[in-house]
Amino acid sequence: MNIFRLAGDLSHLLAIILLLIKIWKTRSCAGISGKSQILFAVVYVSRYLDLVTTFISLYNTLMKLVFITSSFATLYLMYVKFKATYDHNHDSFRIEFLLLPCFVLALLINASFTPLEVLWTFSIYLEAVAILPQLFLVSKTGEAESITSHYLFALGSYRALYLLNWIYRYYAEGHYDLIAIFAGAIQTILYCDFFYLYITKVLKGKKLQLPA
């Protein structure tokens, strides 16, 4: 564990909490992509299957349980409790176009061809692109509430901080995982346009609105 990794995990946790607070306080999931949230739930379940096979640390186990539970809580709020506020007309991204290629890629490029390892790799690839339906929704509506922007910023920062963690681990421990690094770089690049808007608009107190 190093400072970048810890900051990344806390940023990830903050993102999830911000999203739950936004939905709970406004009693609405408007502006949030249920498709992205489904993909995140798939990511956590397929990655954290090792909860039942390998014990790493109490921290690791607790965080995994928090991520899985909170993603299902989010889905429950969006698709059951506040279903009426869900913006499904704008949330029209076809997730099979992400799920299938990621699965095929995981079958082809993985560290070892075993069910758990392929599913772990699938989750890494899928996480890299899971935010696309959300970014697509923001681009369709042309704006995002400020708390949604904070959520996206925290979620994007998490993998960017992991990139620093991987650079650190490469030098400090000689550890590197090309699959995670490659996917993490793509994941971070996808947020760059959003980061730019967040820094130039939201941090200056303006609403995140896309140029027409």
Partner: peptide, 10 residues
């Protein structure tokens, strides 16, 4: 240096 999986990460 050896390639390892980041299974200790989240």
């Amino acid at each position: 240096l050896k390639h390892q999986n980041s299974h200790d990460e989240l």
